[in-house]
Design a protein around this nucleic acid. Sequence first.
RNA 1: GUCCCGUUCGUCUAGCCCGGUCUAGGACACAGCCCUUUCAAGGCUGCAGCACGGGUUCGAAUCCCGUACGGGACGCCA
Length: 435
Amino acid sequence: MSTPAGPSEVRVRFAPSPTGYLHVGGARTALFDWLFARQHNGTFILRIEDTDVERSSEEMTRGILDAMTWLGLHWDEGPYFQSKRLDLYRELAERLVSGGHAYLDEGAIRFRVPEGRVTYQDAVFGEISVESDTIENFVLLRSDKHPTYHLSVVVDDIDMRISHVIRGADHISNTPKQILLYRALGASLPVFAHLPLILGPDKTRLSKRHGATSVSAYQEQGILPEAMRNFLALLGWAPGNDQEMFDDEALIQAFSLQGISKANAVFNPEKLAWFNAQYIARLPHDKVVEYLRPEYAKVGLWRDSFEKEDREWFRSLIDLYRPRAKVLQDFPRQSRIFLTDHVEFDPTAVEKFLKDETVRGHLRRLADRLAALPEFNHHSIEEAVRGLANELGVKPGVLMNPARVALTGQSVAPGLFDVMVLFGRENTVQRLRLS
RNA sequence: GUCCCGUUCGUCUAGCCCGGUCUAGGACACAGCCCUUUCAAGGCUGCAGCACGGGUUCGAAUCCCGUACGGGACGCCA
């Protein structure tokens, strides 16, 4: 075995089993591990627990790594694969047998649980204490010579000099068994910190029947990794004050094991959506474009000029929709009116605003007015529109609501003057005249 | 069933360790109002909670005990 970690050296690991996708619970655990490592200038290790040959798969491993990368949880060591370390587990299982700590049972090796009470201090839950006669002699090595979870996790945590075991609270009752194993192997204990579970709205463990649970599903739904991180950080942890918006630096600063809650938390997708909207509204333009490029490309609306000659125009377009978007897909969906020549008219809106012949006459006059403007910008357009309304003796809305429909085909759109600027004078005038 | 753990607005939570400053604070959602060219965004206001019962104490969301409810673990799964 390697030498134990020094007292100040923080080494944590995230150890998923590649028997499924990375779900939000696992992601939250990984995030806390990562935050803790970063805060202490420690090492974040990724270990794949693939000792169940039947259920583990490479695609799942791939998916987990991708999801971690998308979430921005970069690991410093690994991924280590337990399937490549089988000899080590066998060797130690045999050592435990010869030391009298374990025994053969029909081809498997079982741990001999000693009498007494096992007590430890959990960094989150405080003292946890169990009478060892409630613990069965558990299997360490299966008859096929593959280790069980308890053996491999303890052996690896010792070997990899893990200083803090941060994992889900579903492992609390496993911990005494593992502590017994540490003792039998003559190793010192890491700090154990168990995280409260994430539940569905019905307070049962979050699962597929509650809706999307995999990180990649949220990625596909147009959730930003920044938003996901911020949201997940606040599930089971709180800074002790009222702050809610955290960038990574602030999160790393503020995070602490003391701030972790003992009570399970219900996953609230609406709050996630709110965080997402906040980040969409706030992220730097280049970052947003980076996320948006594939979304526009997906629906055939991306043009390379958005990053070249039309850069400023595209920036204005994006800014117009930032406060209106909840997910990334909202951008192409809502802004497509600016990106295709074809206008689709909403029949209800047409019926309501463009039926009246007088109104259409007004719009043609407005078109003339706009065509004659020396400058075509937000301010000059506003003056022209309000001026004309005044001359006609009508409220500005009488002009503006029909104009909006004439331009966009819809009764719901961003501010009319912004819309006109974005369309440009020619396009605006033409669409008004065609109405 | 046995063992372990938890319980503050519908939800995420602050406060609890070190009892009075808590007529319990913030956020999401919801409702109303304001802003306003529609829709958002934003601002303001409102709705709503210490699971229950004992005890300790001058005083308990905060400490102790019990009950109820909830969760987790009891696999040659992890």
